[in-house]
Design a protein around this nucleic acid. Structure first.
Lengths: 230, 230
DNA sequence: GCAAAAGTGTTGGGGATACACCCATGG
DNA sequence: CCATGGGTGTATCCCCAACACTTTTGC
């Protein structure tokens, strides 16, 4: 490649953005950030971070996760790079979207607030800066597909959870409802859950049994893929 | 962002690479290019092209397709961006992989040869320059998943084809074999094929019926997705 | 006593799989 | 006459979908 080409081509910046999904045992949420900087100051955006030219995408994502939610304990998957030349006044920025699944901890809401981070209901995402709404839509579609084919609750639910909670997670993500009995059958057939032989009291005052995931089985099914066909 | 940051970050180049699959009615192949330039002169690579900072990814891919196979009539899908900082002596180049499905035309083999392009059998891909083997593997996995869920033959088979040809395409892509009768049942149940009411003579000397895809149905099933579950 | 949520079985149908033989042709 | 590949039907099984009532508890 010629000298002039180098100048012409090596003139792009990279950034990553995260669509972080959290589940509060009732609804799915997405974590958004209030943008304090130009361009698009005052708008909400996805948590994002420029990538240094000598840094890998994954490391950048890890750092971004830690600076956003305080840990990198999340299931992360890369999405497509946004193809359009988005009009960022600074120059071309290629954004590589990711989606992440994290455990929703209501206690952290206050801490998030100080950083300008806020959970928004899955179906009430405001207009975002840049092309971030497109990335969110893409992530939602991806999540739907993943939910159908792989066990997906591990990173969204607390360690111990009830079947009803698991079911409402699926119902939220796929935006439809399931018959309780059929749902239970399917889940139990998969042998994915371990009965913890204890209960918690639920909102109705009645007791409900707790389960956890069989982590080995879960890992196997996640990597191989599985035909849940919800 | 500060002036110095701009210099620091806007220092990356983008490129696209294509994993082009073709099916010669017997085996799947991938189109590779003999690399005439440094770095890695003399190695095979994926057809690749730098992206100008003001050009969209898709347009770049389209141009790359046309310059490689002489047309952009292909099914194309974006893959993940390669995450590692690959040691290209010129600087950081972020490669955005794509895979494409095209009709294999044996007549074009000669024409390809002049451009240094050559079809390699799906399971006999040599060592490639850069991280292109990783991209190939990723593309193969993606193809497998697509084949299971969506009709995929349209861009790989000739306009008119026999059931046996369709079956060997599936067998190749998924690397397993199917019962003839069950395969036919499944395909006919999908109502995806139109009987052309004519035949060709096959290698065994016997006649074989020709079919084409019902394009409307095909388009619908491609976008909605479908549980073929091969 | 009533609202709210937990828990539990059965049935019918459709699609997947397994499996074997006949036919036409070219050599 | 035999090797090659095209074409066809049946029986079984399993998974999915549909569907309703009882129980506990708090109010």
């Amino acid at each position: 490649m010629e000298r002039k080409d180098i100048e012409e081509y090596f003139n792009v910046a990279l950034a990553t953005s995260l669509v972080i999904f959290g589940f509060d045992l009732d609804k799915l949420h997405i974590l958004l950030k209030f943008n304090e900087e130009e361009p698009f100051k005052g708008a909400y955006i996805l948590p994002s971070k420029y990538i240094k030219p000598d840094q890998s995408i994954d490391l950048n994502v890890k750092k971004l996760l830690i600076s956003s939610i305080g840990s990198d304990d999340a299931y992360i998957e890369q999405l497509n790079a946004s193809g359009k030349v988005f009009r960022n006044p600074l120059g071309r920025v290629l954004n590589i979207g990711h989606y992440g699944l994290v455990r929703f901890d209501p206690k952290e809401t206050e801490k998030f607030k100080k950083q300008g981070l806020k959970w928004f209901a899955y179906d009430e995402i405001p207009d975002l800066a840049f092309d971030h709404n497109t990335i969110v839509d893409f992530a939602k579609e991806r999540l739907k597909r993943r939910v159908k084919r792989r066990p997906v609750g591990f990173n969204l639910l607390p360690k111990e959870f009830t079947i009803a909670q698991l079911q409402s997670l699926y119902e939220e993500a796929l935006n439809k409802s399931f018959d309780k009995r059929n749902f239970r059958k399917k889940i139990f057939n998969s042998k994915l859950l371990i009965d913890l032989e204890k209960s918690i009291e639920t909102s109705s005052g009645k007791e409900s049994k707790l389960y956890k995931f069989d982590e080995d089985k879960y890992a196997k099914m996640s990597s191989i893929g599985y035909d849940f066909l919800f």
